[in-house]
Design a protein around this nucleic acid. Structure first.
Length: 412
DNA sequence: TCTGGGGTCCTAGGACCC
DNA sequence: TCTGGGGTCCTAGGACCC
């Protein structure tokens, strides 16, 4: 019998902000941006949730529901730092740890009974260790599958522990709404409701053949989940197995919608630079390049192109992106632009369009550019001219970016 | 309700090949 | 020139998660 923990931080972003500003404690707090900004709620404190505020909700809606809430900008670096601290605690508890996102982790506890004792006691002491080391609350679910432990941690919130005794999985799951199953969102919930399926128990009772013909291949996986099994897909993978990224992307929503070709081009190039930089950091190459356009009416289009060789060079990406963009843009004002790198490979494309010599010069140029950006900030060096002037990187004469002006980027 | 940004996975049609 | 079937790649879109 296998044994898993799922640990989930309670209102993670809000709790980290409270560490830096204790006056926020107990108050309705919304992390994500100012109340009148375009954007959505990243996290809401429990006090704010009482007013119906929840993550992914537009900030303006949150303000209407709870005008007295304190709206704060997020601090990504802080969350990453504290996520790392949590990971350290978990690592010292057992090596079989996998962070599933910035604020949750799975632990494979199989065979740790002699070391840590029964699940409930082990989870309780882990909860305390996390609190002591970070000052943050979490909740832990324990069960015989990753899926059951995940659903259990959700039921345990806030700051609780819930162990589903082996054999009791079905009776634990049966009364829960189908929406509690990870992977069942708004649409699937509606589809299930339309068949009269509201509770996990309703789903578990159905014939497999019926579920398969009604919901396709993953309907089968769904039926398995209703019984608490890690059936197929991601849940089946071993805990701690390092996986390389499958895609790398950046997108930007404009404060003011724009149809200005120069501004749009500059944004596309910037997005390419950010994506290509991260490809180089991962030592990966992309064979498929995709763009995303969103117009002011929120209609959204994607266009992609598979290159004959994989690349990690800004200007090669930019030229593919420009081509895609100019073939799809209707010249209406744009709300969002995105650039995506897919079909990632660990090795460089063989049939590069550029000859060896050129490729090599690029490599050196980009390595130098990456260093400059590390030192002076991402916007210091731009290859905005792209293919037209590939080796004339421009250092902006912006005093903000010069050494010594910004204490964050002290020259070495 | 007036909707961010980073991802993963799945589906489905068409091209193309054997 | 009326037309099989399977496999793989490419492309577009969408559901879902945090």
């Amino acid at each position: 019998m296998r044994s898993y923990f799922h640990l989930d931080m309670d209102a993670f972003f809000v709790s980290v902000e409270e560490l830096f500003d204790p006056s926020l404690k107990g108050k309705p707090v919304v992390v994500g941006g100012k109340a009148d900004q375009r954007g959505v709620v990243s996290a809401a404190s429990y006090a704010a949730r009482k007013f119906g505020v929840h993550s992914a909700m537009p900030l303006r809606t949150a303000y209407k529901l709870c005008p007295q809430a304190i709206f704060v900008e997020g601090h990504r670096e802080r969350y990453t730092e504290y996520s790392g601290k949590v990971y350290q605690v978990l690592q010292s508890f057992t090596p079989q740890v996998e962070m599933a996102s910035i604020d949750e982790a799975y632990l494979d506890m199989t065979g740790t009974h002699r070391l840590h004792g029964p699940p409930l006691a082990a989870a309780g002491s882990l909860l305390k260790s996390v609190k002591n080391a970070t000052g943050l609350n979490c909740s832990i679910g324990a069960g015989s599958s990753r899926l059951v432990s995940k659903i259990a941690s959700d039921q345990a919130k806030p700051h609780g522990v819930l162990w589903i005794v082996p054999g009791q999985e079905a009776s634990f799951l049966a009364p829960l709404d189908v929406r509690k199953i990870p992977g069942v969102g708004k649409v699937t919930e509606q589809n299930l409701h339309a068949c009269g399926i509201r509770k996990v128990g309703d789903l578990a009772r159905l014939e497999e053949s019926f579920v398969e013909q009604r919901f396709g291949k993953w309907g089968l996986a769904l039926a398995g989940k209703a019984r608490g099994e890690d059936a197929g897909g991601w849940f089946d993978e071993e805990i701690g197995s390092e996986t390389a990224p499958k895609s790398i992307s950046h997108e930007n929503t404009f404060d003011v919608y724009t149809a200005d070709a120069t501004a749009l081009d500059a944004m596309l190039v910037r997005l390419c630079e950010m994506v290509a930089r991260r490809l180089r950091d991962h030592k990966m190459y992309a064979r498929t390049i995709q763009i995303k356009l969103r117009y002011s009416d929120f209609s959204t289009f994607t266009r992609s192109k598979t290159l004959d060789h994989a690349t990690q060079i800004d200007a090669e990406m930019a030229s593919a992106v420009r081509e895609l963009f100019h073939h799809s843009w209707t010249r209406k004002p744009i709300r969002l632009l995105g650039v995506y790198a897919q079909s990632l490979e660990k090795v460089e494309g063989q049939a590069s369009l550029l000859d060896e010599n050129t490729t090599d010069r690029w490599r050196k140029t980009l390595a130098a550019v990456d260093k400059l950006r590390d030192k002076f900030g991402d916007t210091t060096v731009s290859l905005a001219a792209g293919m037209n002037a590939p080796f004339r990187a421009r250092v902006h004469e912006n005093p903000e970016n010069l050494p010594g002006k910004d204490p964050k980027h002290k020259p070495k």
